[in-house]
Amino acid sequence: MADILYRMTLVLYFFGTVLFLIYLLRRTETVSRTASFVTGTGFLAHTAALIGRIVGLGSFPLLTFQDAVSLFAWLLLLVMFGAILFKSLHVLGAFILPLAFLALVSAIVTPVEQPNLPPVFHAVWIHVTLSVLGTVGFAVAFVAGIMYLIQDRLLKSKRFNVLYFKLPPLDFLDMLNHRSILLGFPFLTLGILTGALSAQMTSGSYLSWNSEQIWALITWIFYFVVLLGRVTAGWRAKKAALLTIVGFAGVVLTFVGVLLKNPGSLSQ
C-alpha cells in the first residue's frame, strides 16, 4: 500500500515539476493553479504514505535513509504550499519542487535495507528529525540563493524577460535566505549533538571521524561563519546567496557520507 502511495507521489510530483517549470517560462498565470493542484494531490498521497509508514512500524519511521529523505521532501513541500497560500509565491514551487523530487528519486535509487536495531536505537529518530529540519532550512536558503542570483543577473544585464517579472524582489530573497539559515542552524546544532550522543551509545565514542560526521561538522562551521559574517562583515545580498549555495553542497555531501558509511540506514 505504502509503495503504491509513494509511486503515486513520485508521478504527481514529476508532473507538478513539469507544470511549475512551464509556469516559470510562460507569460500566463493560469498554469500555476493546475501545477499547485497536481502537486497538492501528490502531497496528500505523500502524507498518507508517511502516516501509513508510522502505523506500519508502530513508531516514528525514521530509521532508513529513505524515510529521512521522504520527511525532508514532505517538509519542503509544506514550506512551498505555505508560500503559495500566504504569499502567492507560486514561483517558489518551480524551484523547491524539483529539489524535493530529485531528493525522493535519489532515495529510491539507493538500496533499501530494513534496519534491525536493538530498542535503544529507536531514539535515533530524534537525531534524524532534527537534522532533517535543519536541512530543510538550508535547502530553502539554497533555493532563495539561486533565485537571488538569477534575479541579480537579470537586473544587471537588463534582461526584462518572463523570469524577471515572476521572481520576487531581491531584498525579499535575501531575507528569505537569511531567515531560513537562522531557523535551520539551531536544528542542525541539536542534530549534531544528538548524533554524537547516539554514536557514544553505539560505539562508545562521540566522534568517530567518519565522512558523515566530518561533513556535518564542516557544514556547521560553514553556516556559523555565514551567519557571523552577515552581522560583522556585511555578508549579505549577492555574497550571502553565493555562500548558501556552496554551503548546501556541504549538506548534500553529509547525506552522501551517511550512505557511504552504512548504505540504507542512519547513524549507527
Binding site: L155, P169, D171
Partner: peptide
C-alpha cells in the same frame, strides 16, 4: 517598477 524588483517595500 525596477526599484520594486530590488526592494519589496
Amino acid at each position: 517598477e525596477l526599484a520594486k524588483k530590488v526592494f519589496s517595500n
